[in-house]
């Protein structure tokens, strides 16, 4: 049984806290499940590597990382990049939808205006 390092405890507690916050946000409706998956996977991955010290060391040696704990940072960093990219895609999709909505409103306003004008004309003729 290898000695437990502080960094493992910090990483595990940090990940569990983040996991808790994310789940709480979902519960309170502040975060959609759809956008929480990457966060939760990040927590699980960091926790798993911090607990399974041998695994972390083995992967670090394979990758040529001299100081295994820094591999935790790398994993976390890559996940954060992935999450950012995911958000950029989501924002782009929202941008398109938002534009279409605004255009639709502009077209509908005009349709309503035309209908109103037609009705006034009709009423005027009726009288």
């Amino acid at each position: 049984m290898p000695k437990i390092h502080y960094f493992q405890i910090v990483a595990i507690l940090g990940s569990i806290a983040l996991f808790g916050v994310v789940v709480d946000f979902i519960r309170r409706g502040l975060l959609k499940e759809k956008y929480s998956v990457l966060w939760l996977v990040l927590c699980v991955a960091v926790t798993a590597l911090a607990i399974k010290r041998e695994l972390l060391d083995r992967i670090a040696i394979k990758l040529g990382v001299a100081y295994p704990p820094s591999l935790l940072f790398l994993v976390a960093f890559l996940f954060v990049l992935l999450i950012l990219l995911h958000f950029s895609v989501v924002i782009s999709i929202l941008h398109e939808k938002n534009k279409a909505l605004a255009q639709e409103i502009a077209l509908m306003r005009q349709t309503i205006k035309e209908a109103g004008a037609k009705e006034r004309e009709h009423n005027a003729r009726g009288l």
Partner: peptide, 22 residues
């Protein structure tokens, strides 16, 4: 003149597209 008004500024591309949609 028929006038379509965007609820906020969308940029020239979206503006032309609104015209083509009409």
């Amino acid at each position: 003149v028929a006038t379509l008004t965007h609820p906020y500024n969308l940029g020239i591309g979206a503006t032309m597209q609104t015209g083509y949609k009409y």
